[in-house]
Design a protein around this nucleic acid. Structure first.
Lengths: 227, 227
DNA sequence: GGCGGTAATTTATTGTTAAAAATAACGAGG
DNA sequence: CCTCGTTATTTTTAACAATAAATTACCGCC
């Protein structure tokens, strides 16, 4: 059962608006700071205001936009404080998910999916295709989240990853090398495959905290306070 | 600045509907399984459908209700699986928050608030006033969450606590004794006050996992699959 | 002639729109 | 500098359209 077909499906307008706005925000087509009143957005999407409003409420709950009265909906930037908060939470949640994945001996199917993401990422890195690498890095983390078998945990991690998605892209462009250590991905995969719960959790946590440190130093070096 | 005044304030109808529905759900006045179409709820609240619809969307995001098409909005029950998932996540997040609180040497003001909650809870327990004890237990956990200084973390924990609030009340009624070890609250408070990050995190985690075990055995003993 | 299944109609509910009412920002005039 | 009116935007309402469930009627079959 495919849970999330891309877009054109026979879904409601709320879903269409939500999917389109979210995609536009994550891809940077609606850059942080972009701001528009509801009627504009509705007109741009070719529908009435109500479904747009419902979509915006969902996006606000995910901290992708801010609905400020009489000022319109604003695409949120990610501040350094935001990054610290999110990475801190991710360090705990991803450790939990990785540990569960290791303990729960997840199916060969998902294990294969994870391995493929790792291998593809290594290949992209070898070819210096950083765009692809970033996508595969993201996929890897989302697969780990899903492998724990805790659907709430998966959703929470996924939402947090959305929030820092743009920051990761920016980091990638500022930083010459990869934004994260690719070896750690393989180590984590191995630990999960071996069923070593504690090791998997420790690697996941360390990996995320290392990412935070990298992010912090790069932003510091560039004098950026938000992204 | 008081962030959440009770109810009658000059707030929008969406806020009123949200606050009222949420309060009714948490207090059990809208019991799990309760189900009604939007117009009914709107009529009951004396307002139009649109604001209650927005409120329901928010409540659905918090997993308090389920919006099932053509069947109405339904107050969700908490299954045993839900409890496992939420407690597992809480064990990680509360450990993080407690650790941060210990490290960040939070202000005397919040420290005093926590201590008061601990003392009041102990007193309620001594007087066998379980109703009050449950409220104070809840307050303690929310204060710890807030003390970490990570607002996202606070919100996530708070949302999870809402989801298991009813389960805790039920547990209290089924179980003769307290639902959780009150000594552990004091130990956690002491660790935070002493600035011992690792100890605080460890206690918080163990406390939550112990709660899960208690919950599990009581539900098992009573043959309940959901609450 | 009764029974079961299917198709059509009805009904209830949500999804959507548009317009009216409320509200807060902005600017002009005292 | 304060007050009042104007305007832009949101909030709320009410009506409308679409849709799925439920009921009923109809037809073939036993």
């Amino acid at each position: 059962m495919l849970s999330e077909m891309p877009s054109k499906d026979k879904s409601t307008r709320v879903d269409k608006a939500y999917a389109r706005l979210k995609a536009d925000i994550l891809a940077g087509r609606l850059p942080p700071g972009f701001q528009a009143p509801e009627p504009d957005i509705a007109g741009r999407l070719g529908m009435s205001r109500t479904p747009v409003r419902e979509a915006l409420i969902r996006l606000e709950a995910e901290r992708l936009v801010d609905l400020i009265p009489r000022r319109g909906a604003k695409v949120l930037a990610i501040s350094k404080k935001d990054i610290c908060e999110v990475f801190e939470i991710l360090s705990a949640l991803e450790a939990l998910a990785a540990g569960s994945a290791a303990k729960g001996e997840c199916s060969d199917r998902v294990l294969a999916g994870i391995e493929e993401a790792v291998i593809s990422a290594e290949k992209a890195l070898a070819e210096a295709d950083m765009e692809s690498w970033a996508m595969l890095d993201d996929r890897f983390h989302r697969l780990i989240a899903r492998s724990g078998g805790n659907v709430r945990l998966d959703e929470m991690i996924s939402s947090l990853l959305n929030q820092v998605f743009r920051a990761n892209i920016v980091l990638l462009r500022l930083n010459k090398g990869p934004a994260a250590n690719s070896d750690e991905h393989r180590e984590l995969y191995d630990a999960i495959r071996a069923g070593d719960q504690d090791k998997a959790a420790a690697i996941a946590k360390a990996h995320r905290l290392a990412g935070l440190a990298t992010m912090h130093s790069v932003l510091e070096a560039c004098g950026l306070t938000h992204v």
